[in-house]
Design a protein around this nucleic acid. Structure first.
Lengths: 217, 217
DNA sequence: CTAGGTTTGTGAATCCATTCACAAGGCCCG
DNA sequence: CGGGCCTTGTGAATGGATTCACAAACCTAG
């Protein structure tokens, strides 16, 4: 298998989600063109993305919705149940803990940790926040696959080092810092501040171009 | 000014954040190499990024931390105060509303809306959740610059259309769907599900390569 | 069973971002 | 004041991802 671009993987997620909806609606078949339009890309891109993994369509006809959905779920590893742990039970952490959609996709948050003793013992949807000190052992014992970092920025790298030492191979980082992990550990970032600042940049730029009137007096 | 890649803008955000910290620590100067290492990129990349906007360093010496910080803040439009509204006051919405870091960066959430009457009237940090029906007028009257969409996926596109109609030019989307906006409106997505699924993909792939023992027994 | 109309799968071409490599510029020390 | 050392800024080269374009495959209808 050739090396798969990250952007392709992201798009596969979108495809899967759409296909799931269509499957619910009983749609039997769709073309790369339709799939592309509904996911905000091009037909050629869709076909190229899929071509990394095999051939799924019928020429002249398109793709079978249930078949493609199932194939993509398998490629992305979504048939499996993933054991997830959350580190940092602040506002974001607790919001994630309550976010039922993850569970529906097979990502089960099974443990949560926080360094603040006041947070320890809090409970949400069956998960009790444990002390930071308990983390290293618990990660191993619960065979955690994925750790979500939702700590303050200062604490994040230290947590990551411990998480990696515990053998975890995938980390999702919400802290607004760039983290370093050894090769073989997958790291993804969700950085809301970066996105907001990109919007800010876009606003000051398009204003310059479109010369909009100042918003008030 | 040449066209600036989006990836450059994202990195500028990281640079600004780091420079702010260094400025707090009283660091006077740093090289592209140092900046690069601390932000997980390369020196050449840093210099290329900056070169889109002008020349900020002194050869042989590096960059003045306060000067570069200030220049980048200006480029990103972070000196300005942005008026932000939140649509959808569920778990994620409320978490964002409570997230003080945004305000510190100049992004002030000044209004919140939700279609659920039970949510209307809830209050957090001085912002009261208003009814969905009040949104269209309030966006205009409060001169909102940026709208954060934190609704369920099904509702998101309809909300976006109304937001665009109200003249808002920048949208940050947390709903797990691909949204369509007309040209001239900036749209950024934060899609946690996509990132999690990318991790899932990485796990099933590296497992195949590294042939790790099954996690139990 | 053949012709016409579709749509896929994929090399080739294009476009865009990153990396390289080096001349130009600036500081420091003697 | 001049030589050595360091770091920037930037064209050129590289490397990846996207788009193009078309042959191959499949369906339907007659």
């Amino acid at each position: 298998m050739r090396k798969v671009p990250e952007s392709t993987v992201s798009r596969l997620s979108l495809y899967v989600r759409l296909l799931g909806e269509l499957q619910g609606e009983g749609v039997a078949t769709l073309s790369s063109e339709e799939l592309a339009q509904r996911c905000g890309t091009t037909a050629a891109q869709v076909r190229k993305d899929l071509s990394f993994f095999g051939t799924f369509g019928k020429r002249g006809l398109g793709y079978s919705v249930p078949e493609l959905a199932s194939a993509l779920r398998s490629i992305l590893g979504l048939e499996r149940r993933w054991r997830v742990a959350l580190v940092g039970a602040g506002r974001i952490g607790m919001a994630l803990l309550g976010y039922q959609d993850f569970r529906r996709q097979g990502f089960h948050i099974e443990a949560a940790f926080d360094a603040d003793p006041a947070k320890v013992g809090q409970q949400l949807l069956g998960v009790t926040v444990q002390s930071d000190a308990a983390m290293d052992r618990a990660l191993v014992e619960s065979a955690i696959d994925i750790v979500i970092i939702a700590t303050p920025g200062e604490a994040a790298q230290r947590v990551v080092d411990r998480v990696v030492a515990a053998g975890v191979k995938a980390i999702l980082n919400f802290a607004p810092v760039k983290l370093h992990v050894p090769a073989g550990v997958a790291l993804k970032n969700v950085n809301m501040a970066v996105e907001l600042e990109a919007l800010s940049f876009a606003l000051v730029n398009t204003n310059r171009r479109t010369r909009r009137a100042p918003s008030k007096t």
